[in-house]
Amino acid sequence: MSAPPLIEVRNLRIYFPIRKGFLGPVQYVKAVDGVNLRLYDGSVLTLLGESGCGKTTLGKTIAGLYRPTAGEVLFRGKNIWRLSSSEFMIYRRSVQIVHQDPYAALNPTKTVFTILATPLKRWGIARTRSELVERVSKLLELVGLTPPEDFLYKYPHQLSGGQRQRVVIARAISVNPKLIVADEPITMIDVSLRLGILDLMLELREKMGTAYLFITHDFGAARYFSAKGGGRIAVMYLGKIVEIGPAEEIIKNPMHPYTQTLISAVPVPDPEISRKKKPIQLRSLDIPSPVNPPKGCRFHDRCPFYIEGLCDKEEPPLTEVKPLHEVACWRVIKR
């Protein structure tokens, strides 16, 4: 038997209780509602979806920040919520997060050196002052903040957004994690610098073998990161993965009507192609509430291709229809 994957997610459900009014009944927002996933060492997976689809909740649960309502997250085959405390610390160190907002992620009263030295001290990677300076300088070089002397004693407000995000990434890799959960890491970065941050993350993967779970709403960024990293894209809708496959396959040959609709709607930097595109028209523009998601296929009430009596009754399972390409749509499965 082969080694267990780095992370495995089984039938994961995460529900958040809400109450309508003061005395109203408790209801549940089904943020993630039955997800199965495997992440292997050094692999790249992009979670792609609109706001409210559950992509961030799924990422945070994989990072151990939420406890699942049902299902499990396995780290090297072991449920992370049943690990011994020493095992749990290894897991904590192995999975790091990069958040969207580099302005909020760094303590404004600490220098870059202090920010980066803290995890090194915490994990006993470096102890003496000179060791720390050497380590931190190396990290800064790795993330392209050179010469490091120029950055060591700067405060976050003295850095640009792109530079701050590089510091955040340096902090994440400082403890040699196995997986980085990057939640919209380029959304707040200037357009011209975005690919630089994605390239940096991919470069670090080459050097350190880190796997990535990249979370984004941006189709172009999802394609770039996953295609360049030889990875997959998973499209989420209302707490479920509706389609997953190799990056270029998903972009060039999407099979789920939801993925097709989104791809047909994204503007592209070519007026001739962009204006000729015929966006697929949905039956309804509004995303249903994740409190009461539609029965059957969750997309059926908006889907222009739905089959009455099937899509609104039975939930389509995520099914491999081509090598590595899985789709949860009755039209595709039944073909």
């Binding site: 640009s160 011209s192 975005r194 630089g196 994605l198 941006d218 172009g220 791809i263 930097p269």
Partner: peptide, 17 residues
Amino acid sequence: IPSLIGSVDEMKPIPGS
């Protein structure tokens, strides 16, 4: 621009800031 058309190998960030 990371876009859905063209080849990803032709997309490049602008160096510097």
